[in-house]
Amino acid sequence: MLVRKVILQLETGLHARPASELVKIASGFTSEIVLVKDGQEYNAKSILGLLSIGAGKGDEFIIKAKGHDAQEAIERIEDFLANRVYS
């Protein structure tokens, strides 16, 4: 299992398009991927799960990924949340 800490840099938080975008990215990997916030785990492939976090810019997350493509997955998602690819 890979674990990484990231601070959310998306201007609009994890709402609407960004959330749906993240689901699409996560669903492209076979690994199990979860976001941990305040001790609670959320499935990164679940739009409802991501929305119910209600995360805003500046919030801190832990990304966990388990599976054979976990390395690539965790990097893609870290880039996304840190706003390094998404604009």
Binding site: S20, V23, N43, S46, I47, L48, G49
Partner: peptide, 9 residues
Amino acid sequence: KEMLEDPEL
């Protein structure tokens, strides 16, 4: 449609 495909749901 995205919601209906949500694995958690």
